[in-house]
Design a binder for these strands. Structure first.
Lengths: 121, 121
DNA sequence: AGATCATATGATCATATGTTCATATGATCA
DNA sequence: TGATCATATGAACATATGATCATATGATCT
């Protein structure tokens, strides 16, 4: 077995070539993993998590969310924008007021799955 | 009703006092929400997600992970440290080699729940 | 013991991210 | 129409974060 057969794609050549090759074939697509990381990134901020936990209860306007979380309207608005771009929330206008609500049932499922991990010993 | 009864905890006074007060009582504890955001923050990075997706297949040593992901040993080691501190992975030593594996079944459940959201229309 | 291998870690640096401030937009009401 | 209210947004700034580089640690083998 000469050097050409060794896996040398990186500075740390694999120790277990068989394992590496086997696992490589079963990994999810890079794109999916990237998108998944992006999704969790959205959940990975206290402000956004708190906003979502408010919206789990009821649709809420920007102003009320700001009040509930004791933050500025601007900060909340910026984060709502991110949540909306990620399609986790949606909104509707009623006169001057804009109400935000969850876009999706998955959101709560993901949230709850995380909560289980947090609360269990 | 005088001003003292109005909710003025922030620069954006609530429009719907009843809703705000009602929701306030039902929100999860601040600590839990903070921890939850911290948890999702761990998942919110491509490298860590890719590492986890490797470990879903089999326990793997640092070197092999680096090879699989085409990254340096150091970068992987740093991220494994973060995953371990978050108790998402564990490790065992076998001679010079250190094998990492999932610490918890929840990890895959959270991962999969996110994947559902990604893959569904 | 010395050399080597696998991994860990501290410092550094560039980039990403969240909040603030000022201001813009868009709708309602007098 | 002008004033006001609710929300959105751009710029600026401070902090957080991830990769790299150099080096340390810890185990194995001769």
């Amino acid at each position: 077995m000469n050097k050409k057969n060794a896996i040398e794609r990186c500075d740390s050549p694999a120790i277990h070539e068989n394992t590496v090759e086997s696992v490589r074939g079963r990994l999810p697509a890079e794109d999916a993993l990237f998108d998944l990381a992006e999704l969790f990134k959205i959940f990975g901020d206290s402000t956004r998590i708190r906003i979502l936990s408010v919206l789990f209860e009821t649709e809420t306007c920007v102003c009320d969310i700001a009040c509930l979380l004791n933050m500025t309207q601007s900060a909340i608005s910026h984060q709502l924008r991110i949540l909306k771009q990620a399609k986790l929330v949606q909104n509707r206008r009623d006169g001057k007021t804009i109400y935000y609500s969850l876009a999706d049932d998955h959101v709560k499922l993901i949230f709850d799955q995380g909560l289980i991990h947090i609360t269990e010993p």
